[in-house]
């Protein structure tokens, strides 16, 4: 019996096979990132000439200088940062308020919930949405990337569920003492749900940071681009150009691979820097809603 207790097992061949396989997958995921960093710091000629470079031959910072000297990229970083903070607060505030309302016995509650859930199944489609944004005068406006996100219904339902699991004695006794609904929400509910709030705030922040689609649809001015859209322009315009190069038509100057990879590293860096430390919060969102008991 004792042999089966944790820590007191014999290592079987299976254990080694598993570790090797899983480590291979680990490398498969990490290597492209490593390679991207590598390309961004070595001189491009060195990289192109090397049969396969696993270690930087020389380190230079020209690509990063280009990125941080480019007014377009700098401004797009600022735009994305603002969008992330403002957007996450906007989404989270609306989500928490609505989620709390769905835990109270207000008349019409099921109807309101249905209105929200229905949007997960049905929508107006691309053109009607575009024409709405146009009619609202939001074309080429920063807010066209933030305001329409409103809330994620899934997150709202999960938060609402976890609010329901807070013991009602806590909220009732507070109500007895004369606390209003808003006070109960912010002083009793939310402090009890901090981990799950952290999770969904992070999700919203990542979603806003990753925004590029609305920018492609609505934003024409270069100075309002978010970072991901600027990155897309740099990557896929070059991709488009090399498509034409295949047909041999014309080849205008393109961004070098080094600059592209430097942009990617700069875009990924904020997430990569916080991810290992906040991993607990990143990983609990799905299971908080889907697995009960």
């Amino acid at each position: 019996m004792t042999a089966t207790k944790k820590g007191l097992y014999r290592k079987e061949p299976l254990d080694y096979i598993l570790l090797v396989l899983l480590s291979l997958i680990l490398i498969l995921i990490l290597y492209p990132f490593y390679n991207a960093v590598l390309i961004s710091i070595v001189p491009q000629n060195d990289y192109v000439r090397a049969p396969l470079m696993l270690w930087p031959s020389r380190v230079e910072s020209t690509n990063y200088k280009f990125v941080f000297d480019s007014p377009v990229l700098l401004r797009s970083m600022a735009t994305s940062a603002v969008m992330m903070v403002v957007g996450a607060i906007y989404n989270m505030l609306l989500t928490v308020l609505f989620a709390y309302a769905m835990t109270r016995p207000i008349p019409g509650r099921n109807f309101f919930r249905f209105i929200m859930v229905f949007t997960m199944y049905f929508g107006g489609g691309l053109i009607p949405y575009y024409l709405l944004i146009k009619a609202l005068g939001l074309l080429d406006n920063f807010w066209s990337m933030v305001l329409p996100t409103v809330i994620s219904v899934t997150y709202m339902l999960i938060i609402s569920n976890s609010m329901n699991s807070v013991p009602s004695e806590l909220t009732e006794s507070a109500a007895m003492d004369g606390a209003g609904e808003i006070r109960i929400l912010f002083q009793i509910m939310l402090p009890l749900l901090l981990p799950i709030l952290a999770t969904f705030t992070l999700y919203y922040a990542v979603e806003r940071w990753n925004e590029w689609y609305s920018a492609m649809l609505f934003i024409k001015s270069v100075d309002k681009w978010p970072l991901q859209y600027a990155l897309r322009k740099i990557i896929s315009d070059a991709n488009f150009i090399s498509t034409q190069a295949v047909t041999g038509e014309y080849r205008p100057p393109t961004y070098g691979e080094g600059i592209k990879m430097a942009c990617i590293v700069v875009t990924v860096f904020p997430l990569m820097a916080v991810y290992p430390f906040l991993q607990r919060y990143f990983l609990t969102g799905l299971t908080a809603g889907a697995v009960k008991g």
Binding site: L97, G124, I151, E181
Partner: peptide, 27 residues
């Protein structure tokens, strides 16, 4: 429950109606 309607339901609901429901007749 007027405060709940006003401060908690109305903001998200009106924005969802604006950005998700108003495009629907455009179909």
């Amino acid at each position: 429950y007027k405060w709940i309607y006003l401060f908690m339901v109305a903001p998200a609901l009106s924005l969802v109606i604006l950005f998700r429901y108003l495009p629907m007749p455009g179909i």
